[in-house]
Simulated scan of single mutants.
Amino acid sequence: MQITLAYIGPRASSGDEFERLAQTYLQRTSSFARCESVAFRSEQALLDWLSKQQGRTQPAVALLDSRGRQMTSEAFAAWLGVRRDEGAQLIVFAIGPASGWSDATRKDARLLLSLGPFTLAHGLARVVMAEQIYRASTILSGHPYHTGH
C-alpha cells in the first residue's frame, strides 16, 4: 500500500519547519506503508496525476475539506484499515487550493475529511495529517504510540 500526502501549492523548501515535521511522521509511517508527500501547482494537475495512476485498484482519494467528516483517531484508523483490507494500492490524502475544491472534485472523492472547524495553514494541515496517518498506522498495528505506553 502506498500513502501519498498531496497538496496544492508551491513545493515546500528544505528549510520549511512544517515540511520537516510532516516528513518526520511520514518517515515513521514508512515502517507500516510506503509514504510520500507531493506538491501540485493546481487542482487540475493533481487530477491529471491521479488519472495516470495505474494499478489493479483505483486510488482511494480523501480530500481535506472544511465541510467534510470529522473523525476520532480510532475512526480514522478504522477507515484506513478498511481501505488496506480491501486491497487499496494507493491512498491519497489531498489538501486543496486556498479557494477550496471544485464541486466536481469533491463529488468524486472517496472521503471528504475535516480536521475540525478551524481553517489551518497548508503547512500545518500537512503536519496534522501526517501525524494522524502515523497514529492510525500505529493503532492498526497495536503499537503503543497512540495509548502513550
Rank of each mutant, 00 (worst) to 15 (best):
L46R: 06
E131C: 05
T29Q: 05
G68P: 05
G87H: 04
T147D: 12
G87N: 03
S31P: 07
G96Y: 02
F40E: 01
A78W: 03
G148F: 11
S73N: 04
L90S: 11
H149K: 12
A104M: 09
T105K: 02
R34N: 13
E43R: 04
S141E: 13
A12Q: 10
S73G: 05
Q89M: 15
H146K: 10
R56Y: 08
V38E: 08
G9R: 11
S37W: 03
V127A: 00
R11F: 15
S13M: 13
C35M: 15
Q58P: 13
L5T: 01
P97M: 01
F93W: 13
I95H: 04
Q54P: 04
W79S: 05
A104S: 15
S102E: 13
D108T: 10
I91H: 00
I8K: 00
P97I: 03
G123V: 08
F93R: 01
G123H: 07
K52F: 15
A94I: 01
V61Y: 02
Y7P: 08
L140H: 02
H149Q: 09
V128G: 14
D16T: 07
G123L: 10
G15A: 12
A12M: 11
T57P: 01
S66H: 09
M71P: 06
R126Y: 06
R135S: 02
G68K: 03
F40Q: 00
E86M: 10
Q89L: 15
L50Q: 07
R110Q: 11
S31T: 13
L124E: 11
D85M: 10
D48C: 15
R20T: 13
H149N: 10
S42K: 12
R126S: 05
P144M: 06
G116K: 04
A104R: 09
A136L: 03
H146Q: 09
V38I: 10
K52M: 15
L112D: 00
E17L: 13
H149G: 14
Q53I: 14
H122T: 14
A62P: 07
S30P: 08
K107G: 08
R20A: 13
S14Y: 01
Y145W: 09
V38L: 07
C35V: 12
L21M: 13
G100Y: 06
L64E: 04
A75F: 03
R106F: 12
Y7T: 03
A75K: 12
H146R: 09
L21Y: 09
E131H: 10
A98L: 03
Q132V: 05
P117F: 01
Q44M: 10
F40S: 11
L124G: 14
R126T: 06
V127T: 09
R11L: 11
L80W: 05
E17F: 14
I8C: 00
D16F: 06
D103R: 15
L47P: 06
D16L: 00
G100K: 07
G96F: 01
A77R: 01
T4A: 10
L120Y: 12
I133R: 00
A125P: 04
V128N: 14
L21A: 08
T4P: 01
L140R: 11
H143W: 12
R67H: 13
L140Q: 05
I139Y: 11
L120F: 14
P10Q: 14
R69N: 13
G100W: 02
G55E: 03
A62V: 07
P144N: 06
E19P: 02
L46K: 01
G116F: 04
T138G: 03
Y145K: 08
P117C: 05
S31Y: 06
R135F: 00
M129V: 15
S42P: 13
T24Q: 08
A130I: 00
